[in-house]
Design a protein around this nucleic acid. Sequence first.
DNA 1: CTCTCATGTGTAACCGGTTACACATTTGGT
DNA 2: ACCAAATGTGTAACCGGTTACACATGAGAG
Lengths: 338, 338
Amino acid sequence: MLLATIRDVAKLAGVSVATVSRVLNKNGYVNKETEQKVITAIQQLQYEPNAVARGLAGKRTGTIALILPDISNPFFPEMARGVEDVAHQLGYTVILCNSDDHGVKERSYIEVLKKKYIDGIIFASNTLDETDVEEMQKNDLPLVILDRAPIQDTFSVVRSKNYEGAQLAVKHLLEVGCKRIAHIYGPQEFLTAKERMTGYEDAVRHLPWYSPSLMVPGNFRIDGGMKAIEQLLSRHPDVDGIFAGNDLMAVGALKALYRLGKKVPEEVAICGFDGIALTEITEPEITTVAQPIYEMGSLAAKVLIEKITATVKANPIHELEVSLIRRGSTKRGRETDE
Amino acid sequence: MLLATIRDVAKLAGVSVATVSRVLNKNGYVNKETEQKVITAIQQLQYEPNAVARGLAGKRTGTIALILPDISNPFFPEMARGVEDVAHQLGYTVILCNSDDHGVKERSYIEVLKKKYIDGIIFASNTLDETDVEEMQKNDLPLVILDRAPIQDTFSVVRSKNYEGAQLAVKHLLEVGCKRIAHIYGPQEFLTAKERMTGYEDAVRHLPWYSPSLMVPGNFRIDGGMKAIEQLLSRHPDVDGIFAGNDLMAVGALKALYRLGKKVPEEVAICGFDGIALTEITEPEITTVAQPIYEMGSLAAKVLIEKITATVKANPIHELEVSLIRRGSTKRGRETDE
DNA sequence: CTCTCATGTGTAACCGGTTACACATTTGGT
DNA sequence: ACCAAATGTGTAACCGGTTACACATGAGAG
């Protein structure tokens, strides 16, 4: 059975295709009675407008793209879910792209996406630079970027309070009685990693025990957290609190400490950052500064679709709150607990 | 700057659009010299064929859809990654859909996807029934289904050996000295859960200690695993081996046992199923029967795209091997270890 | 009693490709 | 030398929508 076209509907309703199109898109003038005839014809034929033809004629495909480093990194599925939920709700469809934070791959995706008349892109990937952004701007492709600084007002940004979150983490570790708090920082090409590190530094630099060597690098992955702990403990065996730049490294830290026979939280307390589900499956569960990951995704989608449909182009910056989730990895006697 | 069209290229090369199209699609006869002129013109204009127009004219959009229950369920990101990698490599784009295993949502996605001239669908979601499949067949939408029985030869199936895997798990638990092995089974509407349960039953039913009450239901999630353990241990305090129907429930079992003060693996050994990354972050790490999750995704994409491009429609059934990954949760003295 | 403007509808061009068909011109087999 | 098949290329219809523009009607303003 072949699908009905707008011309079939027009014929059956005894009107022109233009009128049918007006009914469909609710624009232009249409007489109430005429409209009813058209609606009846549409129902009779079970007519569904062809999205591809629509895309070609109207330059709108109802499709957005989500470019992220790697969907199998546990941070992103929840964000992707947020994006997809909102998009679906608003009648959009989401294309998934894994860039591996690799500029070439990212650009090749953008090429394809432009050819497909994508309506907009959400970038949760970190590679593209100013030039790329300008390039997009020229094609006036609406753009929302996650975890970037709002350097330009030409694109919208969704991020959360990394600096404040880091301070929250340190403050909490101090409260539970830590006397020497180290930080495992992420790759400095990520703004998030940088900001969290600065937050840590500003929170501890005035304290008597502070030393720059308490900061060790990690790669934002589990193995990076493990290596960091080995390195750290050989340098500072007396460390009793760890603020990891993200949750995966916190998991790694926990693992490494366990293998070294250090008790968590009794001997060393750990606090992560991100609030991914993984932090609830370890034993003890890991205290973390949670970003509203799902909301970051859903908000990004909302903002993007607003940009797509809006006539005036605003480029708001959304900075979301983070919150400390206290769990076993920092639970000590001295804490006045709930 | 407006993008060049095929007519611009034709004009510049001094040929007709048909010829340009022939060069583009490498079909029909084209003289070598003519071809060269066209190629030069394409490069000069930086011409990129418009995918939407192509879709409208040729009924091929180079887009496939992946319908899964929930991308934030840790089983699926890796599979999605497999799908996307292959798709991207073969020049296809992937649309992501979360069905929540909800029939209505699934069908609403299918509606939209048909309108968008999607080339094919990979189903990792379990809701659609015979009628739906036939419906797809009528629209001759290529289909690949994961984890379904090969009841019909009208669609392709990718699955792995659940029954054999379950037997593998039980055999391993016996080998490490378990004397009484329980099974936490998943929701029986999932074929996978059913097959794993049958595998377990067939492996233990002849053993002296066997009792049907050693099988307790779980929901394939962490909390389900925890509840199952509580229920199980009150019924059979002497259980010393757990075969969980999937890894999430194995994680839950581990958590619950830890809280009840049972030592893993010394007092109770645990084996999961799936091979998701989560099993490596707990302490001890969890032994599991690993499915080749990434490969299931990449194979599904390969099969689907083959179906899309092939003229003759075969509907192969691919049943992948599973493998036991031995980890801490079943490591006991008596095991002859590597 | 005109004139203007809001309302209502149809025609046909257009979006940017693919491809059926027509029309050469070679090639090669007998 | 003759004719069928292979090679090469162009014209124009088509995919299924959107929309600019033309045209008609009726109402309210001056």
